[in-house]
């Protein structure tokens, strides 16, 4: 494990570079194939509406994967992530147009946990169409 960020260089409140992740229907089809999650709410508008959703929605695990990128891009080595958890609070609605949806993710160091293990807690915020789509989105990251 070789994180490129030093524990000594961060403090509570240090912000991670924010990122925006576009999601289209094509993204969801590709993610369905790669993950093996073929639930039709992620690609079939008719089915999604029949079960009470406003439209096709992104896989929660897709959103979780994108939010993680803010942490792994910052840390450099993805293995720096020791723990990672999210709550799926609102769906990311993905319309069938040229735009799709955007997931905006920001993060900051919320706590320095252990001076010996050099671990910090990063709190993430993920927003799509003005709504928070993840809650309790936290990672424990082992820094250099």
């Amino acid at each position: 494990m070789t994180a490129k960020i030093s524990y000594d260089d961060v403090e509570v409140g240090t912000e991670l570079p924010a990122q925006s992740f576009p999601v289209t229907r094509a993204t969801l089809v590709q993610y369905a194939g790669a993950s093996g999650d073929f639930n039709p709410i992620h690609w079939n508008e008719k089915f999604a509406k029949e079960v009470g959703l406003p439209d096709v929605i992104a896989h929660g695990m897709f959103t979780m994967a994108e939010a993680a990128r803010v942490v792994t891009d910052w840390a450099g080595d993805p293995a720096a992530v020791a723990e990672y958890g999210v709550r799926f609070t609102k769906p990311v609605v993905v319309p069938n147009d040229d735009q799709g949806a955007v997931i905006e993710v920001s993060g900051k160091v919320a706590a320095k946990l252990d001076d010996d293990a050099r671990t910090v807690r990063v709190d993430l915020t993920a927003v799509s169409a003005g709504q928070k789509v993840l809650g309790m989105s936290r990672a424990v990251v082992r820094l250099a």
Binding site: A79, A82, E83, G85, R87, F88, M136
Partner: peptide, 13 residues
């Protein structure tokens, strides 16, 4: 069923 929360705790990748 809907997916409520997801957590991972890693010993290694």
């Amino acid at each position: 069923v809907v997916h409520g929360d997801q957590k991972f705790a890693y010993s290694r990748p």
